[in-house]
Amino acid sequence: MRRVFALLISLGLILFFVNSLSILPEYGNVELSKVSNAYINKSVNGNNEKVKFGESKDLEDGAANVVTSIVVDYRSFDTLGEVTVLFTSALGVGLILHGFKRKTYGRLPNFILRVSVGILLPLILLFGVYVFVHGHLTPGGGFPGGTIIAAGILLLYLSNEEFDLSKTSKFVESYAGSLYIVVGLVGLAIGGVFLINFLPTGVVGDLFSAGIVPIVYILIGFKVGAELSGVIADLYREG
């Protein structure tokens, strides 16, 4: 009986959604909004020139990846809030699972795993760092890079019975978060707006371009990696 009512309720919900499709644009035929056009042409303040890869320079924001320039430059304050939400949830996990000792299982991990982690872990960490250093040129950025680093830490937990995350992760996390706000405050002092892009932005497509965008993304990468590794470490504790 319960299943029948649940099925009816969800079917009604799906019907409601399908009926309200008429107010949405047709799939694949969306019009670019004015705001999106301004973000793509990097001209929020009104100088309308088309951007060309490898030639345009000294724009408002020199990142070749438009999604990165939205996340870290135009809507950076929003990202600061999201990072705070992530910090709060990691803090909640740490408070709820208040453990001190690392849980052990009393047997040696797999020999093949132990040996191969010695080869794989530096490569995984290197790949994570590559993803967030090149966040303004290629797909990727601080959020996936930090997640990859946390996955490397998980591999270390699986392969080593004694490894326990020390206070270093909390140190890295708190300093990366504070430096993000410090970068914003320097922008406030120089340009008059919180988190303004105050460095020269360079040529679109160079590694050293886009002003504060790579700096902020590197900080976000460290912060997300430390937080998610902290979550994994909390789940491994007992107490």
Binding site: G140, F143, P144, L154, L235, Y236, E238
Partner: peptide, 26 residues
């Protein structure tokens, strides 16, 4: 949307499963 794809690949297929299985084992 390659940005979203790479994030979802590392989070959804890797970390979500790990967190759920660790909680289940606990």
């Amino acid at each position: 949307a390659p940005d979203v794809a790479i994030t979802e690949a590392s989070v959804g297929a890797g970390l979500t499963t790990a967190v759920l299985i660790l909680a289940l084992r606990r």
